[in-house]
């Protein structure tokens, strides 16, 4: 585990975090708050889509996001040879 490895790992981690934050922002603040009126014109099952994102969809996406992050970080840990044991 060299200092270069660690620097590369940290940059990759920050990129991943940025990507996760974009998804996090778009599904809650974007679909659930800022564009809720536009999305509400679309029917989704028995829901108006914007309302569904605000009360259901954003939460499902948050859960998927955390598992995706854990999976992706495990991959980066090994790629940059900084994993435990």
């Amino acid at each position: 585990m060299t200092p270069e490895n660690r620097a590369g790992y940290w940059r990759a981690n920050l990129r991943l975090l940025l990507g996760c934050m974009i998804v996090w922002f778009v599904c809650s603040y974007g679909f659930g708050i800022l564009f809720v009126d536009a999305l509400n014109k679309i029917q989704f099952g028995g829901f108006r889509l914007g309302f569904w994102f605000a009360q259901q969809g954003s939460i499902y996406i948050f859960v998927l996001l955390l598992f995706f992050y854990a999976w992706r970080m495990n991959y980066l840990d090994r790629k940059y040879d900084v994993h435990e044991d």
């Binding site: 809650s28 659930g32 708050i33 809720v36 605000a54 009360q55 954003s58 939460i59």
Partner: peptide, 8 residues
Amino acid sequence: YDGSVYLM
């Protein structure tokens, strides 16, 4: 809908 603030 306003209650969504707590959920999100």
